[in-house]
């Protein structure tokens, strides 16, 4: 999917939570949000981008959030 768009969306989520006074809460909430509302292929792509492009254009708080809580974003899909 269009990576620019995903980066843009992730950054907007980051901007919202950046306003929270407790930095650790903010990091957790960013990842929580991605986990709850982003379909796995979007998350996979974001993670791959983070790894390959070193998070270029992603806000520092988004990069930090994902680094801190990365395992929460890996998919727990059931097989059918």
């Amino acid at each position: 999917m269009d990576m620019n768009n995903l980066v843009h969306m992730a950054n907007k989520i980051g901007v919202f939570f950046e306003a929270m006074p407790d930095h650790n809460d903010a990091l957790r909430d960013i990842v929580d949000h991605l986990h709850k509302f982003w379909e796995p292929r979007m998350r996979r792509q974001l993670l791959a981008y983070l790894d390959s492009e070193n998070g270029k254009d992603l806000l520092p708080i988004v990069v930090e959030a994902i680094h801190t809580h990365r395992n929460q974003l890996s998919q727990k899909n059931q097989s059918i």
Binding site: M1, N5, F37, E39, P40, R41, K76, N77, Q78, I80
Partner: peptide, 22 residues
């Protein structure tokens, strides 16, 4: 049936994924 535990695509994400071929 089994239900997937992960969220699905939202309408705008569907469009992006369509252009992506997935």
């Amino acid at each position: 049936v089994n239900i997937q535990p992960e969220p699905g695509l939202r309408i705008p994400n569907m469009f992006d994924a369509a252009l992506d071929g997935s």
